[in-house]
Amino acid sequence: MIETRALRYEYPSGPTLSFDDVDVRQGGTLLLRGNSGAGKSTWLALAAGMLTPKAGEIVIAGQPLSRLSRGARDAWRARTVGFLPQKLHLSDALTVERNLALAFYAAGVPENRVTLTRALGLLGVAELAGRRPSQLSGGQAQRVALARTILMEPRVILADEPTASLDDETALTGLKLLENCAFQCNATLVIATHDRRVQKALPKATVYQIGRAAAAAWSDTLP
C-alpha cells in the first residue's frame, strides 16, 4: 500500500535526509518515531505529495508519485490522502460545517451534505456544525479536524503528532477515534509521533524509527 524506495530529500538550504525503505499493507498502521527534527514531518509531507524527493520513489496505492505532475499531485492528494496536521488549521472565518466543506471545495467536487453530516456524527460533533472553531474545546477541535480528514474517504490518513499537548485521557480517546476512522475507511494510518503513549495505545502498529539513516546523512555533511 505504501512503499518507499531509497527516499532522499534535500532542504533548499540545509541537510539531505535519507530514509529507510518502508512497506505497509492496506489498512495497516505505521508509527513514525523519532526525535524532534528527525524528519518525521518531512516524511509525511513527501508521502502526501506536498514535497518532492531529491531521489527515490514513493508508491501509494499503486501510484508512483514521481509520475504525477504538480497539479495532478494536488488532485491525487485531495482524493487519496487525509492529512491531520499537528496544528489543526481550522479557519475561524467559517463555521465548523463550512470548514469541513472546504475539503469538497479543495478537491473540486460537489458538496455532499450527507457525507458531511455523517462524518461529524461519526466523531460525535454533529451538534457543533454551526459553531466557530474558536468556540470549541481542544478535544472538540481535534474531532472536527479529524472529521475533515476522513471526509473524502481517503486511502491513507497521515497524522502529525496527534497527541501532542493532550492529557492522557484525551490522547487515548483521540487515538482510538483515529484508529476507528481509519478502520471505517479501510485506510492505511500513518502516525508521526515522539510520544511513547501512542505505541502503548496501538500495540499492533508497525514501528518505523526515523533518524538512523537521517542521522547518518547528517554526519556525512560534517567534515
Binding site: A48, D74, W76, R77, A78, V81, S91
Partner: peptide, 17 residues
Amino acid sequence: RREDLAMLRMLGATPTK
C-alpha cells in the same frame, strides 16, 4: 490566513485555486 490558505493546499486545492 497563510495557514488557512496552506490548509486548502493541503486538502488538495491547486495554487491557482
